[in-house]
């Protein structure tokens, strides 16, 4: 005869008043998977949450944003880490799998455009100049093709892998929907390789997450971006207040609404949103404005399902997260 087992449901009765003190009594498993860009943040939160709730087993995978959404839509995981908003087809798959989700932005990832420190001529770049360098139909061969007074030295480009969220975001901003990014670039999935590439070539230009620039400040030079309102360098300040535009992208977690009813998941998300600003900065990303965290907290509490990044017709809504996310 099987022994009777204590039902987790017993804890559910307490869930209404789950505060910091009773997280210690929480039990259960929380499964998270998705973007490896978001992973360090979720890892930091889960690490701290383990101290607050020692009996909750949190596991975090790194299948990538797309892979994570696939498992999320099949109901295999409770939370999906995503380095971009959910796409239309992913939203539809989730709907067929009867997975309702709550969308929560958690951080900014600034994109830094960097050059070699020996490059003395580039003082700033505008989005149009970036288009001249990166678009397939213009594909500037030398720096002179970008701005007439610059030397006729060949441009060497280092780019993250075309499957990565970083590349996706850069493509969306620079190339938009109709155009494409040139293919004659040195591509690597490992951003550290890009750092070494730009470090070793005077005529190189590359782009990747700000954290990689911050760690290699002595070897690289960051290019201020002029978006019509003067040149802006990516810093925590300029990314958070939105002046470093358009190269900062929001990072998200998506929570299965049914999972969110479980007390341990609810406690984890409350913990996540409360500690995100501090932990996000610690692992090298930029915190969102307080208003966005407040909106996320409100949406989670009210269980608002769906995404703000797709309109009623399923078309993509673009714009800064501060305006789009409500």
């Amino acid at each position: 005869m099987k022994r009777l087992m204590i039902a987790f449901a017993a804890v559910a009765a307490l869930s209404g008043a789950a505060s910091a003190q009773d997280t210690k009594s929480l039990k259960g498993n929380i499964k998270i998977d998705g973007s490896s860009t978001v992973y360090p943040i979720t890892e930091a939160v889960a690490e701290e949450f383990k101290k607050a709730a020692p009996n909750v087993n949190v596991t975090v995978g790194i299948s990538g944003t797309g892979g994570g959404f696939k498992r999320f839509s099949a109901g295999e995981i409770d939370i999906a880490d995503a380095s971009r908003p959910i796409k239309k087809d992913e939203h539809e798959t989730a709907a067929t799998g009867k997975v309702e989700y709550i969308e929560l932005p958690i951080a900014f990832d600034g994109l830094s455009i960097v050059i070699n420190p020996k490059n003395t001529w580039v003082d700033k770049l505008s989005v149009d100049e970036l288009k001249k360098i990166f678009l397939a139909d213009s594909a500037a061969k030398t720096w002179r093709d970008v701005r007439a007074e610059w030397p006729a030295e060949p441009i060497k480009i280092f780019s993250p892998g075309t499957d990565s969220g970083t590349f996706d975001y850069f493509k969306e901003v620079v190339a938009g929907k109709d155009k494409s990014i040139r293919s004659d670039m040195s591509v690597s999935e490992d951003d550290n390789v890009l750092v070494r590439g730009v470090e070793g070539d005077k005529n190189a230009i590359g782009f990747f997450g700000v954290a990689y620039y911050e760690e290699n400040k002595d070897k690289l030079k960051v290019v201020p971006i002029d978006n019509g309102k003067g040149a802006v360098t990516p810093t925590a300040q300029t990314i958070e207040d939105g002046t470093y535009a358009p190269f900062s992208r929001p990072l998200f977690i998506y929570v299965n609404k049914k999972s969110a009813e479980r007390p341990e998941v609810k406690a984890f998300i409350d913990f996540y949103l409360k500690n995100a600003p501090a932990l996000v900065t610690e692992v090298g990303y930029v915190k969102l404005p307080g208003s966005v965290y407040a909106a996320a907290g409100k949406n989670f509490a009210s269980g608002k399902a769906g995404t703000c990044f797709l309109d009623d017709k399923g078309e993509k809504v673009s714009g800064p997260v501060t305006k789009v996310y409500k």
Partner: peptide, 19 residues
């Protein structure tokens, strides 16, 4: 990576069914 690819986990397997 394809079958699960868990990186963060705060326990070691106790039996063959554990992550």
């Amino acid at each position: 990576l394809v079958i699960g690819g868990i990186l963060f986990i705060m326990f070691t397997p106790r039996n063959m069914m554990d992550d």
